[in-house]
Simulated assay, not measured.
Amino acid sequence: MALRAGVAGGVLSTIAVAGSANAATAAEPVTETIEMPTLTAALTSKVALSAEATQQAADAYQYRAEQQSAAEKAVKDAKKAHKAAEKKAEAAAKKKAEERAAAAERAARSAERTDLSGVQTAAATSSSSGSSASAPSQDVPAPAPASGSVASVVSFLQAQVGDAYVMGGTGPNSWDCSGLVQAAFKQVGVDLPRTSQEQSTAGTQVGTSNLQVGDILYWGGQGSAYHTGVYIGDGKYLDAANPSKGVVIQDLSGYPADGAVRVL
């Protein structure tokens, strides 16, 4: 029994010593092996990486926003440029149309002058072959005696104000200059030649300083006029002006005539 007691005591002592040693060993990591600096550096590195990624994302977002803004501005600028180009093209087309109309009018007037030259040549030939000098040319009829009133002529002309100008037009809603003058005097029984050149020689030359209502005004030389109108008083005249104006009343001071003839 004594031996057993001794053995048992020895075993218990050994266990107690081992337990104390194990307890000391278990507590040692808590008091001596925590590496806070190493953990703090890793965390700092992770935080730094996260901040850098966030900044990169912000930079990328800002870059995309700037790209979108630039694209929107480019679209607006392109629209403005397109509208400006359209306006410029419209203005150029309008100008070109006006130039074509003016060129056509000049060509027609030139053709009228050529026709008149042929008429004058024929008249001269007829005269040299023994025809009476006082006999009128068949192509340029002598003015008929007045059988109507100036008031009727002016009334007819005023009724056409606003009608269109068309080269070669003789009515009823579109006219050229000589076509309108011819139609107006036809209302009172006066048969005038068709062209401006012929009309400038159809009556008595009265000049422009002694005008009366109903006198036919012409621009250009006598026998080579390129435009005609009718004096209506108060320094004004009525004519089929051009494609852009049509039939209008105008102030003679703005476009003085070169001559005038009287048939009434």
Results as ranks from 00 to 15, higher is better:
S149H: 03
G233C: 04
E105Q: 12
R100A: 15
Q222P: 09
Q182Y: 02
T38R: 15
S126G: 15
Q187Y: 01
I249Y: 06
V166Y: 08
G10R: 06
V213D: 02
V119M: 14
E28V: 01
T38S: 15
L3Q: 11
A151K: 07
T33M: 08
G229N: 05
A16S: 12
V248N: 07
V30Y: 12
P29E: 10
D163V: 01
A164V: 10
Q250E: 14
G118V: 07
A24R: 11
A57Q: 13
E28F: 12
S129M: 13
V263L: 03
N242I: 02
Q120E: 15
S147C: 07
G229Q: 04
K76T: 09
G130I: 07
L43T: 08
G10D: 12
W219Y: 14
E32K: 14
D163H: 04
K80G: 06
Y231G: 03
A103Q: 10
S209N: 09
A184Y: 02
V247W: 05
R262F: 08
M167A: 13
G246T: 04
N242C: 03
A70I: 07
T201S: 10
G235F: 01
V230K: 04
G9L: 15
A97Y: 06
D234Y: 01
S147F: 02
K245S: 15
S126I: 02
V248L: 01
A202H: 06
V247I: 08
K73M: 07
Q55T: 12
T44G: 14
Q158K: 15
C177A: 04
S20D: 11
G207K: 00
K46M: 13
G171T: 01
V119N: 09
S20M: 14
K83D: 06
E198L: 10
E86P: 00
A164M: 08
N242K: 04
S147V: 10
V75Q: 05
S155G: 13
I249H: 07
D115N: 15
A184T: 03
V140R: 13
A53W: 01
S131M: 10
M36W: 13
L12H: 02
D239E: 14
G259K: 00
Q212A: 12
A111V: 02
